[in-house]
Design a protein around this nucleic acid. Structure first.
Lengths: 184, 184
DNA sequence: CTGCGTGCAAACGGTTTGCAGGTCG
DNA sequence: CGACCTGCAAACCGTTTGCACGCAG
């Protein structure tokens, strides 16, 4: 049970659907993301503006990982007028509203759908930047157990395995020599 | 099996030993960190400079988490002359040499001993910034299993659970009201 | 019509880099 | 004595903020 997004998919944020098999289950949801966002805004006494609506529509058009600047670029490529601060401010709201999850790969933030999509973990390829998602019930149990043992109240977690993805391993002509460093 | 570092311990990087129980096992190592670093530098045809030696000595004096600037400040507090770029450049070398692990809590990097200290995971308290370490053999097995299934070659991982630590939970006068937002 | 939201430009903060002078080997 | 290293200052880059204008409620 896993899904891979290539770096180019994440970078280009082009239209269309992801190439990889989409085999992570969806979670049934009672509202559309945009409706949930509207409700959130009203509860917080914030305004339902054109910019906010454009952003959430764009974000939930396809299921992928993206960074703030990619989103901005993607929207501008479609002829929308949009500023960087508004993107950042709205993404924060979407996280707060439980619609997006913020991921930290290396030093920058990426975002992914949270609403209607279950908790899952990530395999991050250091070579090509692709991200493979996977789910594990065992991990959920393990986290519960650890938290209980430490009196820790978990809010969210981030489990990222860094390494080399299957595709990059095949490409690679195993050119790595045996250096003494490898043995340490 | 866990160890907690408070935020103040991490921030001050004062002398002396951490207050928390140190019950994560050490891994037997055949060399002192400083010797391993010397060996690494020689292999890479890099120079064994006074600055590099001062940094590694300082870093391995006590077992804790620290950020680059904390290390710099801590060294200057002891009267050492040291520049920020040298700290950053040397920390990179220490990671490359397998002596330190780089952790990403939020947007900044923290470092911890890697050499002589086993793989472990972290509970990060969003309230006070304390970090509790724990180990799990189950997690190792789970990672192996997942990687095998996905043809992924793991290099390293980062498993961080964000939430509220035991100490902060006690302090808290549970002042959280029931808002409609909690129910979404 | 009032105040939150937006866009611009500039600030921010951790990290990195160009360069002139210093030190290791 | 040559190559690498250090320290300074400045650049970098993702992100945030101050402020004047604009638009939602």
């Amino acid at each position: 049970m896993s899904t891979t997004f290539t770096a180019s998919e994440r970078n280009a944020m082009s239209d269309g659907h992801p190439a990889g098999g989409e085999d992570l289950p969806s979670v049934p949801v009672s509202q559309l993301p945009i409706d949930k966002f509207r409700e959130f805004l009203e509860l917080k006494k914030l305004k339902v503006t054109g910019e906010r609506m454009k952003i959430i529509e764009h974000v939930f058009e396809r299921h992928n990982h993206f960074e703030a600047d990619q989103l901005l670029q993607s929207m501008r490529d479609r002829g929308m007028r949009m500023s960087r601060p508004t993107v950042y401010r709205t993404l924060s709201l979407l996280v707060e509203a439980g619609l997006l999850r913020e991921l930290r790969f290396g030093r920058r933030s990426a975002f992914e759908h949270s609403y209607g999509y279950p908790q899952h973990e990530h395999l991050y390829c250091d070579q090509c930047g692709s991200v493979t998602e996977f789910m594990s019930e065992d991990l959920n149990r393990l986290q519960d157990e650890i938290c209980l043992k430490n009196g820790f109240q978990a809010d969210h977690r981030q489990f990222i395995v860094y390494g080399v993805c299957a595709a990059c391993r095949q490409k690679k002509t195993n050119s790595r020599g045996n250096s003494k460093l490898d043995l340490i």
